[in-house]
Design a binder for these strands. Structure first.
Length: 745
DNA sequence: GGTTAGGCTTGG
């Protein structure tokens, strides 16, 4: 565990123990929580701290008992001496480039010294030893290129072990053994040529050759070895120091490895280039998996290229396949059946369809096709044999790496090609690219986490997850459409047509003819001879858009009708829809005491063609004023509403999705990011069938009819966890952000 | 205050 920072008073300062040079220094100290208000100092407030290397030396020279120190970048582990010294049950280790100690002078009653002026800052400086200068028994820091690696495998002891072979500009080659209890804390090496930085590892001779082995307090960071790719440290710790000198080291090693080094270059072997009996590494996407027996799991994978040899078909029990039914595509040489054996089965089982992965030391095995005469054509099957020799194994690759970017491109163009070739339906494509259905478009370089991790995290934070849609609300998608006032943040339902008809009738009661001075008023006939409209055409014209008119529509009954029915009505909702065209903006109005009024804001205040616009009840002016067009560039719903003193409400789409990923379920909103996500303008959703259809198609894709969980596609999502105040209470909410569905519809 | 492993294939 890494904590950010703590501070305390130095209670005890042990001697500097030095064996061979600075890197071997150790110093033990005890610090006590610096809390004067605490009357009874309990033993829990004192903690053992062990410093290593240059930091121990600096501490020894510049710190005295009683000093206040601020510690950061330390690791915490159980204290082995807790029974003996009855101090805090944990011990802090300060080692590595992220470890810092800021030393203040002993607390003085006088004004506190300004931080930085009287404070002594002690920071570790790392020196890196070339691999040809290692001496037996020394503790060293090294930078090197990986020329061989085995993924972490369990030992007979307590740890996982990974075995590496390293080299650097000195030309020396040294083996390296990493022991670490947690698999995920091992250095993240994805391919030969990756660069590794190791701190505090021990050099020792074994079998006549120099080797490196992890030592207490060791740490490792790795980098992609591709020349020119961004220098991004891969580390299990979130908080991490990384300076310019590190970039320099990485780039120098990359350049050297790319030019005149003995580092074997292993270009990615695509399925199309595989030959029988070859061992190779395959970077691919998992499409489906099936358990064959307790020692064998079948993985169906593809890398977007077509194998030039016939591929062996592996029969699978019906229902045993998780992740889709790729029967058609098997015949096209696109999908490799990989049989994963023994110690690799657990890893394979844990992979989700859609995952990008690398299979190391995969064996292309030619087999005669059952049922065909001997001498007949052979077909290739792929075996990941048991054991770890030659680095055999498989691992999921994080999204965003250069290899994955290339792979995704290949998969996409392959899917497009297939669409052309076979006229395949959307269903086929949706199946082929299960994780390509959504794409993040954020700049974050976050590691993917599980939903359980998101759920247990504190806002505000962003996360990247892979998840399936378990359920969503509302089921009737048009109900997701809402009206939103950006000023007062009110959200309202969009009324249906029946409600609107009633509201129109109610809103225009007690309507009297009137002729405002700022408009030209005309009487227009309707199909019903007893009904006429008064159209008040505003003389105000938009200077830049002279053809568009703003028309106020007021319905009046004819004089005959007036006699029999003294009450008149305003514009009817259906007639408004009928009257409005794409050219004019129409505003339904009524009059009272000789003045024109807008209807109340429970109905649209503005019509244009099929589009209707609402005003916010709270934020709009109640009186209809003479429209002002000063400074107006163009008539649109925004400028018209401004001219009328109406606060325009936006159409927005609000959905609630329940996500699942095997670790947990999580309810998320699709709201701010909705238009980006569906590639649909919320405004269009209100009146355009095409837009509604598109949204439905996307949701159907997430949850195909009668689909089981395993058939649903996986989505790459960027989530924002944040808190909102509701009724004075803080609530945590989660939204899908920066994510769009691929345009495959 | 340090066991484990210490690359080196092949079957199913």
């Amino acid at each position: 565990m890494t904590l950010a920072v703590t501070h305390g008073k130095v209670n005890f300062k042990g001697p500097l123990v030095s064996r061979r040079g600075d890197l071997n220094c150790i110093l033990k100290t005890v610090i006590q929580e610096d809390a004067p208000q605490q009357s009874q100092a309990s033993n829990d407030t004192s903690i053992n701290v062990v410093l290593f290397g240059g930091l121990a030396k600096d501490f020894s020279h510049s710190v005295n008992q009683g000093d206040i120190v601020v510690l950061s970048g330390f690791t915490v582990s159980p204290s082995p001496t807790v029974r003996k010294d009855k101090l805090h049950p944990c011990i802090l280790h300060l080692d590595g480039s992220e470890a810092h100690i800021h030393v203040c002078a002993a607390p003085a009653p006088a004004p506190a010294p300004a931080v930085g002026s009287s404070g002594v800052s002690a920071t570790t400086k790392y020196t890196y030893v070339p691999l040809n200068e290692l001496t037996h028994g020394s503790l060293v820091n090294v930078y090197a290129v990986v020329t061989f690696f085995k993924l972490p495998f369990p030992t007979k002891g307590t740890d996982y072990c990974s075995t590496l072979k390293l080299t650097d500009q000195s030309g020396a080659k040294v083996g390296c053994t990493i022991f670490c209890e947690k698999q995920e804390s091992h250095p993240k090496i994805f391919k030969i040529g990756d660069v590794i930085r190791l701190h505090r590892v021990k050099a020792q001779i074994y079998g006549g050759s120099m080797t490196l082995i992890t030592f207490w307090g060791w740490s490792a960071v790795t980098f992609d070895g591709t020349v020119g790719s961004p220098v991004v440290p891969r580390t299990p710790t979130k908080k991490f120091h990384f300076g310019e000198e590190d970039s320099g080291m990485v780039m120098a090693l990359r350049d050297w490895a790319a030019s005149d080094s003995p580092v074997p270059t292993e270009p990615t072997v695509h399925l199309s280039a595989v030959v029988p009996r070859q061992y190779f590494n395959l970077t691919c996407q998992l499409l489906a998996k099936a358990t064959m027996d307790s020692a064998c799991t079948l993985l169906k994978v593809w890398d977007g290229t077509r194998c030039s040899y016939p591929l062996l078909t592996v029969p699978v029990e019906p229902g045993a396949l998780e992740g889709g039914s790729p029967a058609v595509s098997d015949r096209q040489g696109l999908i490799a059946n990989v049989l994963v054996y023994d110690n690799h089965v657990d890893t394979a089982q844990a992979l989700q369809p859609g995952t990008f992965l690398c299979i190391y030391n995969l064996h292309a095995v030619p087999q005669s096709v059952p049922g065909e005469a001997s001498g007949g054509q052979e077909a290739l099957s792929f075996h990941l044999h048991g054991g770890t020799s030659f680095g055999r194994g498989l691992r999921a690759l994080p999204p965003g790496g250069p290899d994955i970017v290339e792979l995704k491109r290949a998969l996409q163009s392959c899917a497009e090609q297939m669409e052309d070739d076979m006229n395949s339906s959307l269903d086929d494509l949706a199946w082929f690219t299960p994780s390509e259905i959504s794409m993040r478009n954020c700049e974050h370089t976050l590691q993917q986490v599980s939903l359980a991790e998101v759920k247990s995290s504190a806002p505000p934070q962003f996360f990247h997850v892979r998840a399936q849609v378990k359920s969503f609300q509302p089921q009737r998608l048009y109900q997701s459409l809402k009206l939103f006032c950006s000023q007062c943040k009110t959200i309202e339902e969009v009324p249906d047509h029946k409600t609107l008809r009633t509201r129109f009738q109610e809103a225009v009661m007690d309507n009297r003819p009137c002729r405002p001075a700022w408009a030209v008023s005309l009487i227009a006939d309707t199909e019903d001879p007893s009904r006429k409209f008064t159209l008040h055409v505003s003389s105000a014209k938009c200077p830049a858009d002279r053809d568009s008119k703003l028309i106020f529509v007021q319905e009046c009954l004819t004089s005959t009708a007036c006699c029999s029915a003294p009450m008149t009505t305003g514009a009817d909702f259906q007639e408004m829809c009928h009257l409005s065209s794409d050219q004019e903006y129409m505003v339904p109005v009524r009059s009272s005491r000789g003045k024109l009024l807008l209807l109340d804001h429970t109905v649209p205040f503005l019509f244009r063609g099929k589009r209707q616009f609402y005003g916010c009840r709270q934020c709009s002016k109640r009186k209809l004023v003479k429209p002002t067009v000063e400074g107006m560039e163009v008539w649109n719903e925004k400028s018209v509403s401004e001219a009328l003193g109406v606060q325009l409400m936006q159409y927005v789409s609000l959905m609630k999705l329940e996500l699942e990923d095997g670790s947990d379920t999580l309810e998320v909103l699709l709201w701010d990011n909705s238009e980006n996500f569906f590639h649909v303008c919320a405004d269009d959703l209100a009146h355009c069938q095409e837009a509604q259809d598109r949204m439905k198609q996307v949701m159907d894709m997430f949850q195909p009819a009668d689909s089981s969980t395993s058939q649903r596609p996986w989505l790459d999502l960027c989530l924002s966890l944040y808190s909102v105040d509701e009724d004075g209470q803080s609530q945590v909410q989660c939204q899908i952000v920066n994510t769009q569905t691929r345009d495959i519809l």
